[in-house]
Simulated assay, not measured.
Amino acid sequence: MYQTLFAYIFRLSQFAVWIGGSMMLLSAIMVSADVIARKVLGVTLGGSDEISGYLFAIATAFAFPYAALHRANVRIDVLYMRFPRRLRGLLDILGLTLLAGFAVIVTWRALATVSVTWENGSHSITPLQTPLIIPQGIWVLGWCLFSLTLLFILVSLISAYLRGDARQVQKLGGAMSMEEEIEGETKGVTPPAPRAASLSAGE
């Protein structure tokens, strides 16, 4: 059951981050096209800055779950790595609890904002008059997924800690070691071919 749920959340976060990445690419294309049009044609593509702002906010929210699952959030671990393993586990639980609490509060307030937007039929005060329920509704989906992901990781982390499974605690919530970061950065990189044992006389 746990593995199935974890696999589902993991695939969902991957799908979300791909959508977010596509939105960032689209935003860059729109802004670039607007700049070129202003320079070459002397015209502007109206609304590119507004739409790119919506896309950036949505893409950021969609990337949070993936970052949480891959422990990509910034950690200050100068002293952390010197602590005993059990103490590091407690700090991992504390840190994730605070992060999950923050995410839940933001998600709660975001849902309230979207609810007001829906009730009032709010539009942006720009020439596009964008119905705000569209970007806000998509944006809050990312925050909901982020909160659920953090709560799932937190429950799994506490369970692993109580079982005394230090490896699982580190895998779920621990700060990445230098070796793990190097492995992640070099994953998929083909090492250079070894030089021939014998060199020609001219070399």
Rank of each mutant, 00 (worst) to 15 (best):
M1V: 07
M1T: 09
Y2R: 15
T4C: 00
I9Q: 09
I9C: 03
R11P: 00
R11F: 03
L12V: 07
S13D: 04
Q14D: 12
F15R: 13
A16F: 05
W18G: 00
I19Y: 01
G21D: 05
S22L: 14
S22M: 14
M23D: 01
L25R: 09
S27H: 06
A33V: 10
A37K: 12
V40S: 08
V40Y: 03
G46M: 11
G47M: 09
S48H: 03
G53H: 09
I58P: 05
I58A: 10
T60L: 04
A63R: 03
P65Y: 03
H70T: 10
H70G: 01
R71G: 01
R71W: 02
N73H: 15
R75M: 07
R75I: 12
I76N: 05
D77L: 02
V78F: 08
V78S: 05
Y80K: 14
F83G: 00
R85H: 05
R88C: 02
G89A: 09
D92Q: 10
A103Q: 14
V104H: 03
I105G: 00
A112P: 02
T117S: 06
W118R: 07
H123Q: 11
P127G: 12
T130M: 15
I133W: 14
G137D: 07
I138L: 13
I138Q: 04
I138W: 04
W139E: 06
L141K: 04
C144I: 15
L145F: 08
L151T: 10
F152I: 06
I153K: 14
L157F: 06
A160L: 13
Y161W: 15
Y161H: 13
G164K: 09
V169Q: 10
V169W: 08
Q170S: 05
K171C: 03
G173T: 09
G173F: 06
G174Q: 11
E183R: 13
E183S: 10
G184D: 09
V189M: 08
V189H: 04
P192G: 05
A193L: 13
A193H: 12
A193W: 09
R195W: 02
A197R: 12
L199F: 08
